[in-house]
Nucleic acid binder design. Structure first.
Length: 258
DNA sequence: CGTATCCTGACC
DNA sequence: GGTCAGGATACG
């Protein structure tokens, strides 16, 4: 269930469950996943110890004591189920890592779009990511420079992970609503002041979601996402839904007029 | 830039 | 049976 705040929470659980422990078995359980990571290669993880678990954008990186890195990405519907080696596998188990203390970490993903890879020691892994939303180097000027290089409407540009790492479909729409910017506004010509407002809004929506679990209660607090036809929380105008670059965009046609 | 594609389930 | 889904990428 991943946008950046959900990945952040997944990383915290993964870290808690695995750091300092040694892998005793690794299984790749779904053919689509096996195309990226063969069972043979996964098997080489046996005996390696997890040194650290970190997040970059929506990517999760497990550093191993032998220098290799396990690299996971949830895409649309992935999540970790953390259980015990003796438990029955979850219904949508796609891969699993078992540890020397009996802990098992299961990649649980109904759509099986998640990815899992193992990178060699010293491998140059380019995740293709821009700055994190909370990166102090991400100033309004820096964001303006990045946006000026892009063509097309702002909303799809915000989903480009090279612009800002970790922003997804929900929080892109939420941030635009808070900043009162139309999702169709050309990214390249947004004025400085509006970009500054957008950056503040991005930080606000991400910060508010981080730490909180992604509960129904949180969803009900969203300003525009999945609220087509419902009144704008600011002006009462019905929220509209359009499709941009194949993704749903929700916005208020009154508050976000340009 | 938009579109199709990877997958599978939920819902109309 | 069609549409949609919180992501990313290859392609035209």
């Amino acid at each position: 269930m991943p946008e950046l705040p959900e990945v952040e929470s997944a990383v915290a659980r993964l870290r808690q469950a695995t750091v300092g422990k040694t892998i005793v078995a690794a299984r790749v359980l779904h053919p689509a996943l096996q195309r990226r990571l063969s069972q043979r290669k996964a098997g080489t993880l046996r005996g390696a110890r997890v040194v650290s678990v970190t997040r970059r954008g929506k990517h999760q990186l497990l550093a191993l004591d032998d220098g290799r890195t396990v690299h996971a990405h949830f895409r649309m519907t992935g999540d970790w189920t953390i259980d015990h080696v003796d438990d029955p596998l979850p219904r949508f188990a796609r891969a699993s890592l078992s540890f020397d203390d009996g802990t098992r970490v299961v990649l649980d993903d109904p759509r099986a779009l998640s990815t899992l890879e193992v990178h060699a020691k010293n491998a140059n892994v380019d995740l293709g990511l821009g700055p994190e939303p909370d990166d102090p180097a991400l100033t309004a000027d820096a964001l303006k420079a990045a946006l000026e290089r892009k063509r097309g409407p702002i909303k799809p540009v915000l989903l480009d992970q090279r612009v800002i790492a970790g922003l997804g479909n929900i929080y892109a729409a939420e941030a635009l609503w808070h900043a009162r910017i139309s999702p169709a506004a050309p990214a390249a010509s947004l004025p400085q002041k509006r970009i500054a407002a957008l950056l503040r809004a991005i930080r606000k929506v991400i910060a508010r979601a981080t730490g909180a679990r992604y509960t129904d209660d949180d969803v009900s607090k969203l300003a525009v996402y999945d609220r087509e036809g419902l009144p704008c929380r600011r002006c009462g105008t019905p929220i509209e839904r359009v499709v941009q670059a194949g993704r749903s965009t929700y916005f208020c046609p009154t508050c976000q007029a340009d």
